[in-house]
Lab assay of single mutants.
Amino acid sequence: MVIEDPKTNKLIEVEKLPDGTYKVTIYDKKTGEKKTITMSKKDLEKLLKAL
């Protein structure tokens, strides 16, 4: 799943891993910076609600 946040000009890509956690990659379209973090479903839901 890919989500675009027009306010921050970032793309957020979410991928479910076999162990039940989620790999979240955040791309900054302005700088080209890429950050990848792994989080639980509960933390991911908090992140998505904040957008």
Results as ranks from 00 to 15, higher is better:
residue 1 M to D: 09
residue 1 M to C: 15
residue 2 V to R: 00
residue 3 I to N: 05
residue 3 I to R: 00
residue 3 I to S: 07
residue 3 I to W: 05
residue 4 E to M: 01
residue 4 E to R: 00
residue 5 D to N: 01
residue 5 D to V: 03
residue 5 D to S: 02
residue 6 P to H: 06
residue 6 P to Y: 02
residue 7 K to H: 15
residue 8 T to G: 14
residue 8 T to R: 02
residue 8 T to C: 06
residue 9 N to C: 15
residue 9 N to M: 05
residue 9 N to D: 14
residue 10 K to G: 09
residue 10 K to S: 15
residue 10 K to H: 09
residue 11 L to T: 14
residue 11 L to G: 02
residue 12 I to K: 01
residue 13 E to Q: 08
residue 13 E to A: 05
residue 14 V to M: 15
residue 14 V to L: 12
residue 15 E to A: 06
residue 15 E to K: 11
residue 15 E to S: 05
residue 15 E to P: 00
residue 16 K to Q: 09
residue 16 K to T: 15
residue 17 L to W: 08
residue 17 L to A: 12
residue 17 L to V: 10
residue 17 L to F: 13
residue 17 L to N: 05
residue 17 L to Y: 07
residue 18 P to I: 13
residue 18 P to N: 10
residue 18 P to V: 12
residue 18 P to A: 12
residue 18 P to Y: 10
residue 19 D to N: 09
residue 19 D to F: 06
residue 19 D to Q: 04
residue 19 D to V: 06
residue 19 D to C: 08
residue 19 D to M: 13
residue 19 D to K: 08
residue 20 G to E: 14
residue 20 G to P: 00
residue 20 G to Y: 08
residue 20 G to V: 01
residue 20 G to Q: 14
residue 22 Y to F: 09
residue 22 Y to L: 06
residue 22 Y to K: 00
residue 23 K to P: 00
residue 23 K to L: 07
residue 23 K to S: 08
residue 23 K to A: 11
residue 23 K to C: 15
residue 23 K to T: 05
residue 23 K to V: 15
residue 24 V to T: 03
residue 25 T to L: 06
residue 26 I to R: 05
residue 26 I to M: 13
residue 27 Y to M: 15
residue 27 Y to K: 03
residue 27 Y to A: 09
residue 28 D to H: 01
residue 28 D to Y: 01
residue 28 D to C: 02
residue 29 K to D: 11
residue 29 K to Y: 10
residue 29 K to S: 10
residue 29 K to A: 10
residue 29 K to F: 09
residue 30 K to Q: 09
residue 30 K to H: 14
residue 30 K to F: 15
residue 30 K to D: 10
residue 31 T to F: 05
residue 32 G to I: 00
residue 33 E to V: 14
residue 33 E to L: 11
residue 33 E to M: 03
residue 33 E to K: 03
residue 34 K to N: 07
residue 34 K to H: 10
residue 35 K to L: 06
residue 35 K to S: 03
residue 35 K to M: 08
residue 36 T to S: 08
residue 36 T to G: 07
residue 36 T to P: 02
residue 36 T to Q: 15
residue 37 I to Q: 12
residue 37 I to W: 08
residue 37 I to D: 12
residue 38 T to N: 08
residue 40 S to R: 10
residue 40 S to I: 10
residue 42 K to C: 13
residue 43 D to W: 02
residue 43 D to V: 02
residue 43 D to I: 02
residue 44 L to D: 00
residue 44 L to S: 01
residue 44 L to R: 00
residue 44 L to W: 13
residue 45 E to F: 03
residue 45 E to Y: 02
residue 45 E to A: 08
residue 45 E to S: 07
residue 46 K to Q: 13
residue 47 L to G: 00
residue 47 L to M: 15
residue 47 L to A: 04
residue 48 L to S: 01
residue 48 L to I: 07
residue 48 L to K: 02
residue 48 L to F: 05
residue 48 L to C: 06
residue 49 K to T: 15
residue 49 K to L: 14
residue 49 K to Y: 07
residue 49 K to P: 15
residue 50 A to E: 15
residue 51 L to E: 11
residue 51 L to M: 10
